[in-house]
C-alpha cells in the first residue's frame, strides 16, 4: 500500500517535471508577429528547413545556437515582408540544398524523386510480360 502511494507521488513528480520543461522550452523564445498569417508562415517555414548543425532536426525543434539564430532571422524576414520563396532561397544560398527537407527537383535528385516510380514501371512491365507469355504458352498447350 505504502509503495503504491510513493509510486503515485513519483509519477506525479515526473509528470510535473516533464510539463514544466515543456512550458519552459516554449517560454524561452516568445515571438510576436504582426499578423496571424505571419505566425502561420513562420510555423511552416521552421518545420520546412533543416537545422544545418544537427542532421535530423528541423529549425523549429533544434536547440542549437545556429537554429535559434535562424529562427530569429526567419522571424525578421517575415516581418519585413519577404516572401517564403525569398526566405528559402536566402537559406539555400548560405547553407546549400542540405537545409531543404523537401529536396529540389533537379538532375542530382532525379533518381531520388522518380527512381521508385521508374522501378515500379519496370516491375509492372516484367509482370505483364510474364503473365502474357504464360497465357500464350498455356493456349499453345491446350491446342
Amino acid at each position: 500500500m505504502i509503495d503504491a502511494a510513493i509510486f503515485r507521488r513519483l509519477i506525479k513528480l515526473v509528470v510535473w517535471l516533464v510539463l514544466s520543461c515543456a512550458v519552459y522550452g516554449q517560454a524561452e523564445e516568445l515571438m510576436t508577429f504582426s499578423s496571424p498569417v505571419n505566425q502561420t508562415r513562420y510555423d511552416a517555414l521552421v518545420k520546412e528547413l533543416r537545422c544545418p548543425k544537427c542532421q535530423n532536426q528541423d529549425i523549429a525543434d533544434s536547440g542549437a545556437g545556429i537554429a535559434k539564430d535562424l529562427r530569429h532571422k526567419i522571424h525578421d524576414m517575415i516581418e519585413n515582408g519577404q516572401s517564403d520563396k525569398e526566405i528559402v532561397d536566402y537559406m539555400v544560398a548560405r547553407y546549400g540544398d542540405f537545409v531543404l527537407y523537401r529536396p529540389k527537383h533537379n538532375a542530382a535528385t532525379f533518381a531520388l524523386w522518380y527512381g521508385p516510380f521508374i522501378l515500379l514501371g519496370i516491375g509492372l512491365v516484367i509482370f505483364a510480360v510474364v503473365i502474357i507469355r504464360n497465357r500464350l504458352r498455356r493456349k499453345g498447350e491446350s491446342v
Partner: peptide, 9 residues
C-alpha cells in the same frame, strides 16, 4: 556575418 557565410558554429 556568420549566417552570410553559412557558418554553423
Amino acid at each position: 556575418f556568420g549566417v552570410n557565410m553559412g557558418v554553423t558554429g
